[in-house]
Design a protein around this nucleic acid. Structure first.
Lengths: 199, 199
DNA sequence: TGCAATCTTGCGTTGAATGCAACTATGGTG
DNA sequence: CACCATAGTTGCATTCAACGCAAGATTGCA
């Protein structure tokens, strides 16, 4: 990676760090883009060359998560079910994540989000985008349309399971614990499908 | 209802109508609050005394739906499950809705929403609020916390089922058809719970 | 008729977000 | 090493959503 890209990444994360700090100090609404840019040492205009909106600076790597899941679902081994691919993807993501970022920072991020309606809404929006990916993939598995009921139900459940992998309060989840939760959700989901087939 | 309230309601729905028309003519982004207010025959400032934001004018009666569900869940008969109360509420809502508003207008509203990312996001936000209600109520049923897995999964499924009651494309659903969809979702959900109990 | 509550309106302010053009730094090429 | 294309940064100007406030208009009630 060249100097140029490295500098850009540096600015990008400086903005994210500055934003997180300011949001947690003064609150989201009391912080302006100008404040964030100033603390990050760049011009206000530069903010928008890295993040398209004020909310997104709190979710710097969600675009990456989204695209990796998109690829993981599209390029999964022949015959592998969406839900298995999802599980595999989650494991690999958790593997990468815990290495690069320390837990305290993530916890602070969660606290700020939890206390800010606009950010909560945006987080749900992101989750909904994941749900769409899952829904389309599941629909293909089942040979149905994304508008049909079964893909909807399955995707909603899977998205809720993904959401439930985020620790609550100050708990720190370990990988096996997270997977256990996911598998419980998958069991729920498969039980539901079975019930539909019986009826 | 006095003259004052009637006038206010009149202004409120004039704004909603004007907004829907303009959004479908020029698009959401190309329409300003001033445009809407002008067509509705009121001042721009008045818009915000009826709707807190530009998005909400497209969902004029969701606050009502929300509060009625909140009450329906809180004041359900002793021993009645959340999901049954939800079903009852849906039936009563559909009964009221189809009488007051014609289907064509609703269809136009759905088209505009479907073609406008901001509005889609807001619709999901509203659905998420319903999901929270359901989640808390289900958690109480099960004697668990709203953060626990089962209430999350059940609420997510139920919310998806609610969402699936909205017609797709230009289809017009009849009441029995909608209920059949909901019941299918409830069967899915109970099958899932059963699977969890077995494991 | 007059008073109180409520709705409407205009004015001003803040701040998010975008477009554009100029400037700067980097990476690669001859 | 000089040159050029590419990409990142910045300042400037603009639009518009959203809010606070105070004054004006209208309705309900005594």
């Amino acid at each position: 990676m060249g100097l140029r890209e490295r500098k850009r990444e540096q600015t990008r994360s400086a903005l994210a760090d500055a934003a997180l700090d300011l949001f947690s100090e003064r609150g989201y609404d009391a912080t302006t883009i100008a404040d964030i840019a100033e603390r990050a040492g760049v011009s206000p205009r530069t903010f928008f060359s890295h993040y398209p909106s004020k909310e997104q600076v709190m979710f710097p790597d969600d675009e990456l998560l989204f695209s990796t899941l998109e690829i993981a679902l599209a390029e999964r081994p022949e015959g592998q079910q969406t839900l298995d691919a999802l599980r595999t993807w989650l494991v690999s993501m958790l593997g990468v994540m815990d290495l690069e970022a320390e837990a305290g920072r993530k916890q602070l991020q969660r606290d700020v989000v939890a206390g800010t309606p606009v950010l909560l809404a945006h987080q749900r929006h992101l989750l909904a985008r994941f749900e769409v990916l899952i829904r389309e993939s599941v629909a293909a598995d089942l040979g149905e349309t994304a508008d049909d009921l079964r893909p909807r139900l399955v995707a909603a459940t899977a998205a809720a399971a993904l959401d439930a992998t985020h620790p609550v309060d100050n708990a720190v989840y370990e990988l096996p614990e997270i997977l256990a939760r996911l598998d419980l959700a998958l069991a729920f989901l498969r039980g539901g499908l079975a019930a539909l087939d019986d009826g």
